[in-house]
């Protein structure tokens, strides 16, 4: 029996689902081994079948979504959160803790036309078996993960920083140029995509829990001439739901 897979999405840009669609060659091979029950982006049909693996993209921003997620959890053996929105709450969590969505909507649209909660990751509401980080996810990492899952193995969980991948590319360190790079605090797996292009890491893959040296980092960024407040703004882009950073004293 082929395993039944669902690829589902909540609030987000659907870019992670697009990454999966973009796999093209490899995708056909995977599809031979699985039964794709739901793929929101590729088909509008939503089936209510039991799933072996649910890949869920997007953050939870409404009560309905929360209920829908709980349903998905119930019918899935393995639930994998994919992408920054599903794992950390996404860019849409930027205002969490600063302004309520009611106020925001009033300011932007002139009234509260629908009910929104603070944008939260899936793990806030249900048990998540695995997380695939990134904005968007990395194709290679998705492939690696789905192969492990289909084989019945626990996927690799990276707990080392982007710096490792960056150094192994022989990139020059952005921090040495006194620019703010979140690489040392951020979970690897992207192959140091941004620093390899000379861009600062913005931490879209999230902070390495229990390992990232947040206080030291903030101090070092301050030495480079960026205030702790400004550093926290950068953190907020992708990790607004990660209180540890925002509460670091400067």
């Amino acid at each position: 029996m082929k395993p039944k897979i669902g690829i589902l999405g909540f609030t987000g840009c659907a870019g992670c689902q697009l990454m999966i669609l973009n796999l093209e060659d490899e995708l056909l091979d995977i599809f031979k081994r699985i039964k794709l029950v739901s793929f929101q982006m590729a088909s509008s049909e939503m089936k209510d079948e039991k799933l072996d693996i649910a890949f869920v993209e997007g953050s939870i921003t409404t009560e309905e979504q929360k209920k829908e997620l709980e349903k998905i959890r119930k019918k899935s053996k393995i639930l994998v959160a994919i992408g920054n929105c599903a794992t950390l709450g996404g860019v849409q969590a930027l205002s969490n803790g600063i302004k309520s969505s009611r106020e925001m909507m009033k300011e932007v649209y002139g009234g509260e036309f629908w009910r929104l909660m603070d944008s939260k990751p899936l793990s806030e509401f249900v048990e998540v078996d695995f997380e695939l980080f990134g904005c968007p996810i990395e194709k290679q990492e998705f492939l690696e993960m789905i192969r492990f899952l289909l084989r019945g193995f626990i996927p690799l969980k990276r707990d080392y920083p982007v710096c490792l991948e960056c150094k192994l590319k022989d990139n020059e360190c952005i921090l040495l140029e006194k620019r703010i790079c979140l690489g040392p605090l951020t979970v690897a797996g992207c192959g140091a995509r941004c620093p390899s292009l000379g861009l600062e890491c913005l931490g879209c893959r999230g902070v390495i829990e229990g390992e990232a040296r947040l206080e030291s980092a903030i101090k070092i960024f301050e030495d480079a001439g960026v205030s702790a407040e400004d550093v926290k703004k950068i953190f907020r882009i992708f990790s607004a739901n990660y209180p540890d950073i925002l509460e670091v004293k400067s």
Binding site: E26, R147, F153, C163, L168, L185, S216, A217
Partner: peptide
């Protein structure tokens, strides 16, 4: 001041440590 980034060891000519892991094909 250390950020646990590992750079010091990755640029070291005498560092010998390695990690071993498997990857599956299609």
């Amino acid at each position: 001041r250390c950020l646990n980034c590992g750079n010091c060891t990755l640029v070291c000519p005498t560092c010998q440590c390695f990690e071993v892991y498997d990857e599956l094909e299609e």
